[in-house]
Design a protein around this nucleic acid. Sequence first.
DNA 1: CTTGATTGGTTTCAATCCGCAACCGATATC
DNA 2: GATATCGGTTGCGGATTGAAACCAATCAAG
Lengths: 161, 161
Amino acid sequence: MLDIEHHRELLRQCSIAAALEAVGERWSFLILRGAFNGLHHFEEFQSTLGIARNILSNRLCRLVEHGILERVPDATDRRKVAYDLTEKGLDLLPVLLSLRQWGERWISGRPSNPVLVDRVTRQPIQPMMVRAADGRALGRGDLEWVDRSDLADDAGSISPA
Amino acid sequence: MLDIEHHRELLRQCSIAAALEAVGERWSFLILRGAFNGLHHFEEFQSTLGIARNILSNRLCRLVEHGILERVPDATDRRKVAYDLTEKGLDLLPVLLSLRQWGERWISGRPSNPVLVDRVTRQPIQPMMVRAADGRALGRGDLEWVDRSDLADDAGSISPA
DNA sequence: CTTGATTGGTTTCAATCCGCAACCGATATC
DNA sequence: GATATCGGTTGCGGATTGAAACCAATCAAG
């Protein structure tokens, strides 16, 4: 019992584990996908995703607790509740897009719908990719894991926020 | 804006669900994170992640079935089996990095270790971000979902892929 | 005001999944 | 030959999930 909690505490030190603690459950990503595509209400999520109502209820609560969704009662119809993405939730977009593009490339084999476009040019966005500080796209052979303490902190290098 | 009736159909075509079918289970991402950080053997995954042996066995099998990991018997020691990332698995790096960066920013609040650097400059990589076709970084207000059929195929559109 | 529909849940119960510990077969090492 | 290592499997109890029924509050119609 204590071991489980203790272990979860240790895992929290890894950012991926910490992130998964918030959004790693079975339906969470799909709920977020729905939210990014304009769903707001319980019934919308339930009918479009086909998720069991109790699970949906539980997941929405958890996403709200984690500050990823915000529960907004409707002022004009007090039966209705809107679930809106917060800043924290909206910032998951790169995760969702990376996952989606991977699925397109390696599983479904075709582009998904709808498409995310640059509002100005109406052109689809680029595939998500790893880039060097100067903006060059980096392939697999260009990358290396190093310990933080071994970082070559050149003059003027400031760690990102 | 897209209407709700449309969403129902569109959400089914999204490949996020397909991707989650392969990597959406509880430990899959953490196993992959281990693999990206140089783990190869059953015992390594088990001891560093603290995952139950039967679950680890099951997840490794599933990742192999999905072509994300490859099971490679060791030629010099026939007890050992290496689990190596395939091309398909390696291509999940943007997903892992996006998730990690989100966790750093919104949960753990501090940079993780180790750090992925450009092998040449030894500088850490950029945060993953959404970019326009011409390379501009796009913020939230610059983006819009559109139906594939409504894509602005500029004049001179040559049979799109 | 009464009736019925809508919204957002909760309850109940069976099936599944997970974590833990113990065990096991095939090797390698001493 | 004895022992350790590696990569699993098995059995068990508790947690999680899914399907369906039920429910309270609110709104809309008559």
